[in-house]
Simulated scan of single mutants.
Amino acid sequence: MSLASVFLPFALAIIMLGLGLGLTLADFRRVLTYPRASVIALVCQILVLPAVCLGLVLLFDLPPVLAVGMMLLAASPGGTTANLYSHLFGGDVALNVTLTAINSILAVFTLPLVTNLSITFFGAEAGALGLQFDKSLQVFALVLVPVAIGMLVRARFTAFADRMLKPVKIASAVILALVIVGAVVQELDNIGGYVRDVGLITLAFSLISLTVGYWAPRLARVGREQSIASCMEIGIHNGTLSITVAMGLLGNAQMAIPSATYGVLMFFTAAGAGFLLRRRAVEGVPAGS
């Protein structure tokens, strides 16, 4: 547990610093360029997905700790991986960057709220105190402060920021991998049971997230590229953030199991969604369908 408490927040801080190194104020102003796409994606992220996740949790009748872990995952914003997938499959990457930035800021407020409500609703014993004010401040510090520092560095030293983007991403990936391996070793005897408990629900949640992320904007007549960007942003959650909150702030390894399981599955489900969307484009499906 001490490994996660020390290194997971550190890994997340480095990841958010890397995000900040690639952001400018123009990325936040760009929401005005895509108002409909941005509003729909944000509503899906903040309201629709937690509601969908709650329905799945009740349907699957998960134990309280795993139920809270699922809700924590649902409340997490999109991650930088969404930008990569959007680029690979023809999405509007500029919109992804904008949504990631705004979602990360909103998560500072929505994630503690959803987590505390979930702990109260499900009566989870572990982490029963929830994210109190001081821990909510830690979420604020872990998310916003590194982003702000990265943006400041980019504004003042643009060339240096460009050079540091790749090393920062590599460092964060290495640290995160070490922490996850340590956590897996710690819970090795229970992993089979965890996969049985949350494998199907995390798969369902991933598929629904991707579907909602694409079709909600399409039904509102948002362009295909922006809809693909929304699909990846809504469909790829920042599992690192939810794992950090579960293990680093709430001190509960079991609560991180849904996010860890989802973190493996979503690479495949998001790729599958991307190939399907690319195939639709190649086959010349009409823009409104």
Rank of each mutant, 00 (worst) to 15 (best):
C53E: 12
V108P: 03
F122Q: 03
T80N: 06
G274R: 09
F133M: 10
V185D: 03
M232Y: 11
V245P: 00
F205C: 03
Q132G: 09
G288N: 13
G79W: 15
P286Q: 15
V212T: 11
G199T: 13
L178K: 05
T211W: 08
L32Y: 13
A253E: 05
I14K: 01
L95N: 02
F122R: 03
M71I: 10
D189M: 06
I208T: 09
V93E: 08
G239K: 08
A173I: 10
I243G: 01
V245H: 04
Q226A: 13
A155R: 13
D92G: 01
V245D: 05
L56A: 06
G90D: 12
T269W: 13
A229W: 04
I40V: 15
T24M: 01
L152S: 11
G90R: 10
D162G: 04
N252H: 00
L49C: 02
S209Q: 07
I175K: 03
V6L: 04
L12E: 13
G192T: 02
A246W: 01
T98L: 01
A94L: 06
S136F: 08
A41V: 12
A74P: 00
C44W: 08
D162K: 14
M255P: 00
T240P: 00
S227E: 08
I119V: 14
L210M: 14
L276H: 11
P217Q: 13
K169N: 15
V184G: 00
R218C: 10
I201K: 00
P217W: 14
F109Y: 13
L25E: 09
L113Q: 04
R36Q: 11
S242F: 09
E187T: 01
M70F: 09
G20R: 05
A287S: 11
V179T: 02
F267N: 15
S104T: 15
N96I: 07
G18Y: 06
G288L: 13
F60V: 05
L12I: 07
S104L: 10
F121D: 08
I191K: 02
T244K: 01
R29H: 09
V143R: 03
T110R: 05
L58D: 10
A287I: 09
V31R: 03
L249W: 07
L19S: 02
L200D: 10
S5Q: 15
N252Y: 00
A74I: 05
L58H: 09
C231Y: 05
S76R: 10
E283C: 04
A51E: 07
L59F: 14
L17G: 02
E187P: 00
P217Y: 15
I149C: 02
T81L: 15
A260L: 09
F89Q: 07
I102M: 14
A41L: 07
A51C: 06
A216K: 04
V174M: 14
S209H: 05
M151D: 05
Y214T: 06
M247S: 00
A82S: 15
E125W: 01
